[in-house]
Amino acid sequence: MARPLPTIVFFAGAFADPSCFNRLAALFNDAGYPTVYATALSLNPSDPADITTAKDAQHAREKVLLPLVEDENKEVVVFTHSYGGVVGGAAAAGLSKSARKAEGKKGGGVIGLLYLVGNIVCEGETLLQAVGGAYPPFIKENNPSKGLAIIDPVMEILYNDVDISLKAEMEAGMIPNALAAFETPSGPPAWAEPEFNGRRTYLKTINDQCNPLFLQDMWLQKSAVEWETVDIQTSHCPFISRPAEVADICVGIFKRWAE
């Protein structure tokens, strides 16, 4: 019997429902890869003051990663976008397949980390610190209410290479996010673990207006671990503008990790 292909677990960025990955997930499914969406508590919460980065990560770990790895014995690829890099990185800590095997644990584990312009933060660091300590002008704080934020203008910052016919859909998809998610510290990240040496890939979005290239390069250098990097000439959200290109790149990487 052929070995099952790994499950791809998507961690969306802030301000976005995980359904933003639907186009890309469908292409992964067509290639034989099951997909699962993690959710973040910080996405339009009823009480923004109750949100922390750690709670986002713990929620994803308990509700998504642990059931896949421990209960279903699945091999997993953690796929993160933007703020999803903070959540997915912390949620996957200690869950590499090689570490679990060394500990005598049966079943699955995380076999690789794919960051699509994912935010890289160190243990104890906040995302706000990682972007320089001040919010960029397109982050509208305390909007639409205290403790929440949105991005405006949406198209210029997130989707500057997306067909203009999708403008209404993209703007309608802007969901308020808790500011506390960006202002509370992260736990230990999986990417810092040696078990992921040779199993970290970072897709750099060269024309990104949200996380500019200089920030991406700074995060990679600061991480002090080795990443495979791939440059794509896109905006912040190529899973919307060029999903087939992203899928082709990723499937090639997944195949190597599953060998």
Rank of each mutant, 00 (worst) to 15 (best):
S46L: 15
D71T: 11
F239I: 10
S46C: 09
E195I: 03
G112W: 12
G109S: 08
S19N: 13
A192D: 11
C210E: 08
E195G: 05
A90W: 08
L128I: 13
E103K: 13
P212M: 10
A180R: 14
G112E: 11
N177D: 04
V154Q: 06
V225E: 08
G173N: 15
F10S: 06
E141L: 10
L114A: 13
D71R: 10
S46V: 11
K106I: 02
G132N: 13
I157E: 03
C210A: 15
N177E: 05
K55P: 06
D217V: 11
A25P: 00
T39S: 08
E195L: 02
C210P: 04
L68G: 10
F138R: 03
V64C: 08
L5Y: 04
P153Q: 10
Q209Y: 04
K105V: 00
A99M: 01
Q209K: 14
Q221E: 15
S42D: 00
D17P: 04
L166G: 01
N73R: 12
T80G: 03
P176E: 04
M1V: 13
S235Q: 12
K222R: 15
E62G: 07
M174V: 02
I120G: 06
N44L: 03
E169G: 04
L68P: 09
F138G: 06
A93M: 05
E72F: 10
C122Q: 15
F196K: 09
R242V: 13
V121A: 07
H59I: 00
S145D: 14
L5A: 13
L220K: 10
A14G: 15
